[in-house]
């Protein structure tokens, strides 16, 4: 098992509460999870990264291999390969993980609408038929199981129009809505994102009990904190989140969020990531030379 992947264990709080292994992709600041039912030893993977060198466009699966090694070494049974949304900052490993394990993949059903947006950006009217690329497309309020654990799906638009939050017992996989309390909240300026919707989605997450654990999608450290972190609680977020703690109204939040987003550069991998992630993490069909090619639209952003 590779030693250079930072990981942390969050223990189960008893029946119905998952054990959560968070592991970190340093290149993209992505937080990835293994969510484990302690009773049945069934597990779900959430938001696992396929690596991409943004210079040479070579891909790799080191984080995904790390996760599969972890699962194999502990005799866990992988039940789900989940993503919260089609990420803009990294490629998904979902399709590869499914190839390796046979476990089903899942994401929110509104990915269909996200795909429609991106077909225009890429000028690929027939691309990204979402349904064949995922085994399950979850609707708002839908429930399923990881072993004996109850999972509830919440639609959480804002960062994208189709992001979902998985609530597994007392663990909330909040992806790109909240960040750590000292870092604030996620950007909303990608296609289909809106700050107002993000605010509402965050409020719905914070409606959960204060003791619920919140696992986020990204952390880059802060000026005063070198070590990446990804776990907080609903209570901490309510008290300490720098974008929310002063009781900013929705209108104020939206103004601040949009002002900050205007200063942010696009992620290096965005134009590559979406066309892979809307295919569940598969590269485009190879051309007759056997190689896959990505299309980078010029002057669309």
């Amino acid at each position: 098992m590779s030693d250079d992947i930072l990981s942390k264990i969050s223990a189960s709080n008893g029946a119905g509460s998952p054990k959560v292994i968070g592991f970190y992709d340093e290149e993209t600041g992505s937080c990835q999870y293994i969510c484990i039912c302690p009773e049945t030893r069934h597990a779900a993977l959430i938001d696992v990264v396929q690596t991409l060198d943004p210079k040479s466009f070579s891909t790799g699966f080191a984080p995904a291999k790390w996760a599969l090694d972890y699962i194999a070494e502990r005799g866990l049974e992988l039940e789900w390969i989940l993503d919260t949304h089609p990420h803009a900052d990294h490629l998904m490993a979902g399709a590869w993980l499914k190839e390796q394990t046979g476990a089903p993949t899942g994401i929110g059903e509104k990915v269909r609408d996200i795909a429609a947006l991106w077909r225009d950006y890429y000028n690929m009217p027939d691309a990204f038929p979402v349904d064949p690329h995922f085994d399950r497309l979850f609707a708002e309020g839908e429930t399923f199981k990881i072993g004996n654990l109850d999972v509830k799906v919440m639609l959480s638009p804002g960062h994208t129009l189709g992001s979902v939050t998985y609530v597994v017992g007392d663990a909330i996989f909040a992806h790109d809505t909240l960040m750590m309390p000292d870092a604030g909240t996620s950007r909303c300026d990608f296609p289909g994102g809106t700050a107002a919707e993000l605010y509402d989605s965050i409020m719905r997450i914070l409606d959960h009990p204060d003791a619920f654990r919140v696992f986020i999608g990204h952390d880059y450290g802060t000026d005063s904190r070198d070590e990446p972190a990804w776990e907080s609680t609903v209570g901490q977020q309510k008290r300490e989140n720098i974008h929310l703690k002063d009781g900013a109204s929705k209108a104020e939040y939206v103004v601040r969020r949009e002002k900050r987003d205007a200063t942010l550069a696009l992620p290096d991998r965005m134009l590559a990531a979406l066309q892979v992630n809307l295919r569940g993490g598969r590269l485009p069909e190879p051309e007759e030379d056997g190689k896959s090619y990505l299309k980078i639209p010029v002057n669309k952003f």
């Binding site: 466009f57 070579s58 891909t59 000028n123 590559a272 485009p284 090619y293 299309k295 980078i296 639209p297």
Partner: peptide, 19 residues
Amino acid sequence: KVPTDKDGNPVLKVPVNGL
């Protein structure tokens, strides 16, 4: 010159795992 797609939109083509 920036290459274009069949509709004339400028587009770059990136080989994955090709370099």
